[in-house]
Design a protein around this nucleic acid. Sequence first.
DNA 1: CTGAAAGCGCTAACAA
DNA 2: TTGTTAGCGCTTTCAG
Lengths: 408, 408
Amino acid sequence: MTKAPTVYDVAAHAGVSIATVSRVLRRPDDVRPETRARVLDSVRSLGYVPSGAARGLAGRRHGVLGLFLPGHDGIDLPEPDWERVADASRIPLIDDREGRPTPPAPTGTHTGTGTDAAIDAPRTASNPANLYFDEVLRGAEVESWRRGFALMVAAGRGSSREVMLNDIAGRVDGLAVLAQTVPDDLLAHVSRRIPVVVLADSRPGDELDHVSVDNAAGMRALTEFVLGRAAGGAREPGDARGPVADLVYVAGPGDSPDEADRHRGFDQAVAAATAAATRQGHGAVRVRVERGDFSREGGRRAGEALVASSAPIPQAVVCANDQSALGVLDAFVAHGVDVPGRVAVTGFDGIEAGRFSTPRLTTVRQPMNDLGRVAVRTIVTRLTDPTAPPQRLTLPVEVLLRESCPAR
Amino acid sequence: MTKAPTVYDVAAHAGVSIATVSRVLRRPDDVRPETRARVLDSVRSLGYVPSGAARGLAGRRHGVLGLFLPGHDGIDLPEPDWERVADASRIPLIDDREGRPTPPAPTGTHTGTGTDAAIDAPRTASNPANLYFDEVLRGAEVESWRRGFALMVAAGRGSSREVMLNDIAGRVDGLAVLAQTVPDDLLAHVSRRIPVVVLADSRPGDELDHVSVDNAAGMRALTEFVLGRAAGGAREPGDARGPVADLVYVAGPGDSPDEADRHRGFDQAVAAATAAATRQGHGAVRVRVERGDFSREGGRRAGEALVASSAPIPQAVVCANDQSALGVLDAFVAHGVDVPGRVAVTGFDGIEAGRFSTPRLTTVRQPMNDLGRVAVRTIVTRLTDPTAPPQRLTLPVEVLLRESCPAR
DNA sequence: CTGAAAGCGCTAACAA
DNA sequence: TTGTTAGCGCTTTCAG
């Protein structure tokens, strides 16, 4: 590691020219076997590793794709316990039993390592927002691997973002950027150098490739299901039990493209149901909108408002995302409102927490893993045909039926 | 994107020399504000993004760290449904209810998009082995971000491995490699160029930095707990109920360093318990070893063997990993053997599946996230002091008590 | 504060 | 089949 050997060193050592060294590494078949062997030997004994930078410079390609994620700013990042890293002798016992009892007093009999281990409470789970990106990351990683690329991941936000983005953009052949991570002008800037694909942002207005998730269709399908279920079962043609449903939509922040798309899907479903009901001589679907902010707390507030309102509790509360829905559930549980017996509640995203709530949350799962994979595929396609018209792909979602909606 | 602008273009456009352009980007304070502004303007209007390759070449540093993971070979990689990507109109409804009923026949009333949606069975969960690497990846990504590095991820195995490793090694300032991913000689080769840290491999024999997880201590602590619990409760001094326990250890493959460390920890706990028992006039702990292979199927076979054996079922089955333990559980459940009433079963790793088994699996959770973070920290440290003696860090683990062991 | 010039290590014509 | 020779785009002395 003193001074990394270069092609020149290898060439000298093997008694050939640098071009031959390069050939041996790039197109071995163009070199006579004996020469090749000699060069390879030198490579071995010198510990030669080609400089990727020089390669990229000279060859104008890197064999690397980039993925740019939002930074981890506001996110709680507990430090590893550096102290214990140095002294790993104490092994904590964590009580992770269901309906876990109060941790019993330590007895010392079961520790043995000579330390007095108590039984600790489990740590809090990891941030669910991250899991979303984790999936994208993994998908991109797998697909890059399959296509023979390495993947460069960077995250940034605030001031570090511009620097980081430039940094990474200069070292990759193509770049996937998550929505909302980079301002449009910066994106446009970078896309003059390399192909850029935008993830999970279906807004029009640029000539870039986009891969997104079908928020509208997902919410529409979910709402349609709710409209058929919430009031107590599928309505067959001729069923004349009054209005189809009485719904509340808990919205997300007004500036979110996701919110816009989902809201639109909701409205479409409602409109269709109303039209159908009218045809059959029923009343329209009644809809109220509560403004939320994608947070659990915002959802809780919305739930409280519904309980406190003089209007009756609706048959279903459709939320713009899972966090909001969990907040609504919190409020309903706190006030003894029966879910799903009295009211159905649904979310959107498919976060882990929704699998463990009571009742478990009916929601729309986004195929984040596929998002990463399709992103890579799109970049690679673009690389082979830079002049093709911009792609706009929409990935299908899945509706996950769980107990927060009445069973069939 | 026709032809990416270079420093020369910017310099010409701004009427300065390329050196000044470079300065504006690297040490803006060394340039007169007006000049700087002029250059920055040119950068903007030309859409200039510096070439990372050229930078790396000239500057001899990349600002990038590498993470090398095992490839995804044998792993089932379901393709995204490319067909549906093109046509996302059909939204499947997935029945994810607990104790889900047979999917009812489709009625068509709830789909609305004009397609006939049935309610599908849920997809299988993702490969648990991957989750392990996911955590390492995320940890490394977060820590890299915190320290201002980008992270380059590559995976390889088989023939692609050597190429990939060389490729990545030539483009990063330091590299973390997961155990078993790269043969030792290759590792030695690469480490002549850049600092390399080996993850989860505590074998001695090289001068590289290592970060591993305390397999031995974790297994020892777990086994100690089992020895105190499995026979029906903690044994207080003076308790004279015969032998402390009758154990089976389901081992992993003989060539696995993990297996070796865990086995050692198990043996240590047993030896200590035997010594204590002997001092108190009890019999030794009885131990049998079944050879497994870290797979669920191998565990199942071991479990079957125990049931079929003429020897009585032991009080506890301690397995070298979670997969094996789940297999043992499978066999016991199939034969109506009561876990944990009749026999305790434990695993090692803390994979997700163990949280959803019946009964839920007592295990040792490895801090994979921290592994990634500490790896990055170690590389960065090494970068600042290349001459320091090799580090050997061991991360502490946690014992997770769940229902597959008798409650206290 | 700015410019000129020498590489950084490799690839890819083009010659031989 | 192998060698020669230009660059690739940037950083970094060293002068001015």
